[in-house]
């Protein structure tokens, strides 16, 4: 055994406490943005000194959908698009558990879009992390409701001609209490955003623009994972509180990042308790789980 190998074997992964090391290696491609996003979440949880036992991660289906399987907390890998309603049930049943939905753009916004807007509307006390790689990656790079106009995908071989969603605008107009967008390059800012989102009482949403060099970059001839990171570096524009009508993402355009919404408003359970208290008075025992 060489000295170098021995050193490697003795090293402990800094996030080991929060990862299912018995399931590593993971299934994701080299240069995928998921690694940094999970690292940012683990760092946020660590820095907040949260009790790991009181965190639950819920994922849907897709590349990002696999995150629940690697996080060493109570974790739920549900069906395509349904991570949010599963999380809603879990969060109401266990209000003290921080329920974090970690899934992809196709899962959350296309097949799960209805759940997304209604859960934001109710200001349900959950955090939704949406890793947006502009395509359906797990199934081979098909067009998504986030694919920028003219970008190629496996099912838009001549370029996408549908208008994509502007996710921060969608979240904010649906009623989210916290909305931010960062890229997989902005690890420290993303970590801060995740800390804020998790601390936020109510529906918090963080969009993470993430590279998919295997499919999106290859189909669109954008280079390697490193090239994508350079692109984020050169083209991200930090604009806290930006007018959300202006944060659309066009093909290889500037990406507006930052914290867009951070407001206080009563959560679903607070509204439920307040209303029942108003109607039933002292006969009503506030629901707490």
């Amino acid at each position: 055994m060489s000295v170098q190998t021995k050193q490697l074997e003795e090293r402990v992964h800094p996030m080991e406490k929060l990862l299912r090391m018995d399931r590593i290696p993971h299934i994701w491609c080299p240069t995928c943005g998921l690694g940094t996003t999970i690292t940012a979440l683990a760092a946020a949880i660590d820095q907040m000194k949260l009790d790991y036992d009181n965190i639950a991660v819920v994922s849907g289906i897709g590349c990002t959908g696999r995150v629940a399987g690697y996080m060493k907390v109570d974790s739920f890998h549900t069906t395509h698009g349904r991570s949010i309603p599963f999380a809603v049930g879990l969060s109401i049943a266990k209000p003290k558990t921080k329920v974090i939905v970690f899934s992809g753009d196709g899962d959350l916004i296309s097949i799960g879009g209805n759940h997304f807007i209604h859960t934001a509307r109710r200001n349900m006390d959950i955090t939704v992390i949406c890793v947006n790689n502009f395509i359906y990656a797990m199934t081979g790079g098909q067009v998504a409701p986030t694919t920028p106009l003219t970008a190629k995908s496996a099912t838009s071989p001549y370029g996408c001609y549908e208008h994509p969603f502007n996710l921060p605008l969608l979240a904010a107009s649906s009623g989210a209490s916290y909305v931010a967008r960062w890229t997989a390059l902005h690890i420290r800012r993303l970590t801060t955003a995740l800390k804020e989102a998790i601390s936020k009482k109510g529906f918090s949403f963080v969009e993470v623009i993430a590279p998919c060099s295997t499919l999106y970059a290859r189909l669109n001839k954008l280079g390697s994972g490193l090239d994508l990171m350079k692109f984020y570096h050169d083209n991200s524009e930090i604009k806290h509180g930006a007018d959300l009508k202006d944060v659309d993402i066009e093909f290889q355009s500037k990406i507006t990042v930052g914290k867009f919404v951070d407001i206080e408003k009563p959560t679903y359970l607070e509204c439920l308790n307040a209303n029942n208290k108003r109607v039933f008075g002292d006969k009503y025992q506030p629901y707490g789980g």
Binding site: V58, F76, T78, T79, G81, R82, I84, P85, F86, A87, V88, G89, L90, S91, I92, A93, K94, T97, N114, H115, H118
Partner: peptide
């Protein structure tokens, strides 16, 4: 809920939450 897809999932999530 917003539809029956959501309803079915929510009762599963809450069941795992102990209800």
């Amino acid at each position: 809920m917003e539809d029956e897809l959501a309803s079915m999932n929510a009762i599963l999530g809450a069941a795992w939450g102990g209800k």
